[in-house]
Every structure is written in structure tokens, then in C-alpha cells.
């Protein structure tokens, strides 16, 4: 099988769109880059803040699944202590 890979050797989730669950309903959805001492590094991230959200989290995720990720932050580092759980977006619905 062909396929030209420019950056092999990363973590399994590298380049994968994930849901990162934080405390008190804070949720981030974006492309996982890596996790290191600084935290979880993400690209093209949509942010869900329960206090200002207009949709329930499940509906917000469902909308992202259908229409894609509306980017709130191009690059983001989520401190390790804030990232409670990380799951692939495509597996999120089955995991909740």
C-alpha cells in the first residue's frame, strides 16, 4: 500500500482528532499533537465551556461530528492536571 508519511514515530494519537475532558464539564476537541511535561498539545481546537454554552455537550459534539471542528484556538496546551480523559472523537459517543 502506498501512502507518503512525513512524520512517523509519534504517539498513537498524534494527528488524531480527540475529545479532552476537563473538570466541571470543560471540554476541548481538536487534533492531538503530543503530551509532555507542559501538558497536552493540540491543534485546531474547539472549546466547550458549560457556563457560556448554548447547547448541551452531547448536542455540541454531535454538531462537530456532522459539520466539523469550528476552531477557537489554532494551538493550545492543556495542562496535564486539567486533562482528565482523552478519547478519539469517533469513539466518544460510545464511551459516554
Amino acid at each position: 500500500m502506498s501512502g507518503h508519511v512525513f512524520h512517523p514515530g509519534h504517539e498513537e494519537l498524534h494527528g488524531v482528532t480527540v475529545v479532552v475532558e476537563g473538570a466541571e464539564g470543560m471540554t476541548w476537541v481538536g487534533r492531538y499533537h503530543e503530551r509532555n511535561d507542559r501538558g497536552v498539545q493540540m491543534h485546531d481546537v474547539a472549546l466547550y465551556e458549560p457556563a457560556s454554552a448554548t447547547l448541551p455537550l452531547s448536542a455540541w459534539i454531535e454538531r462537530l461530528m456532522k459539520f466539523g471542528i469550528r476552531v477557537d484556538a489554532k494551538h493550545l496546551v492543556i495542562p496535564n492536571e486539567s486533562a482528565i480523559r482523552i478519547v478519539r472523537l469517533t469513539e466518544y459517543a460510545q464511551s459516554t
Binding site: 502506498s2 501512502g3 507518503h4 508519511v5 512524520h7
Partner: peptide, 12 residues
């Protein structure tokens, strides 16, 4: 896309 993570699978 040049992205090997995803396009490397999408083109095949």
C-alpha cells in the same frame, strides 16, 4: 493533504 497520519490512508 500532505498529512501522513490521514492523507496517507485517504489516497489509497
Amino acid at each position: 493533504s500532505v498529512c501522513g497520519c490521514a492523507a496517507g490512508g485517504a489516497r489509497p
